[in-house]
């Protein structure tokens, strides 16, 4: 079997292994979806996505194709090969249990069964735990499908952009080394919706080709190309 597809409902969490050169497409199943994602090198989770390194090397405060997602060791963990959106947030974190309860009121399994409201932090830590990881392994996450726009003013004021993603929006990642991916579909903490109605997402895993010599990520910036080269050296 090379490839499969699963649906993750809104407000849930998931973790999966993604082998080198497999692609993972996230596809939204409703409006205002958010996927908070953490990424680790499968063979050594001490190596992980480093958002500041990723952003500063590629001179961008947001994630878009054909950037690579870089580890703290300079390797490309994944390339963003395609997306219906040109902006995915990576600088505003994810929801915490206390904030979700403050905003939407108390919720529990006893009262709400499987519709109980679990924060992104709860889901991410639960999935991390299953892989022997914990709170100290949290790193700055990407928020796929969310745009937080900078005003360009003196303070660097940020504002959530409503309606940025709608049903059917997608983003595709190509693993450049073997990965552990941990994600949550809880709402973004700055999303202004009054009710807790998080959209789900479909995960499509497929076999893909290795990046060719003329791959768009390799030709994006010299820094992006070097991150791919460092990833390739691990398998040389």
């Amino acid at each position: 079997m090379t490839g499969y597809s699963i649906e993750v409902p809104g407000g849930a969490a998931e973790s999966l292994r993604l082998r080198r050169h497999r692609t993972l497409t996230l596809r939204t199943l409703g409006p205002d979806a958010n996927v908070a994602m953490l990424i680790y090198a499968l063979d050594d989770p001490a190596e992980r996505l480093n958002v500041p390194d990723t952003l500063k090397a590629q001179m961008s405060a947001h994630i878009k194709p054909p950037m690579t997602l870089m580890s703290d060791m300079g390797r490309a963990l994944a390339s963003v090969t395609a997306s219906s959106l040109d902006w995915h947030d990576a600088i505003t974190g994810h929801s915490l249990p206390a904030a979700v309860e403050r905003r939407f009121g108390p919720s529990s399994y006893a009262a709400d069964r499987n519709d109980w409201r679990r924060s992104a932090r709860f889901g991410l830590l639960t999935e991390l735990w299953k892989h022997g990881l914990g709170a100290r392994d949290l790193h700055a996450n990407i928020n796929f499908f969310t745009k937080i726009a900078p005003a360009g003013d003196e303070r660097g004021t940020l504002a959530f952009v409503p309606g940025h993603a709608s049903e059917g929006d997608y983003v595709t990642l190509r693993a450049e080394i073997d990965l552990l991916i941990v994600l949550s579909t809880a709402p973004h903490p700055l999303e202004p919706a009054e009710a807790w109605t998080p959209a789900g997402v479909r995960l499509e895993i497929a076999e893909g080709p290795a990046p060719a010599a003329d791959d768009p990520s390799r030709n994006w910036r010299a820094e992006t190309a070097r991150s791919l080269e460092l990833a390739e050296r691990s398998y040389a």
Binding site: L96, A135, A140, P150, G156, L190
Partner: peptide, 26 residues
């Protein structure tokens, strides 16, 4: 310290007078 929790809670990217540096648990 969490850069991203600090940025989100103050609604701005830069740190200056009045900025509260937050942990991962806010």
């Amino acid at each position: 310290y969490s850069a991203m929790d600090t940025i989100r809670e103050q609604g701005a990217v830069y740190l200056t007078t009045g900025s509260v540096l937050m942990t991962v648990n806010c």
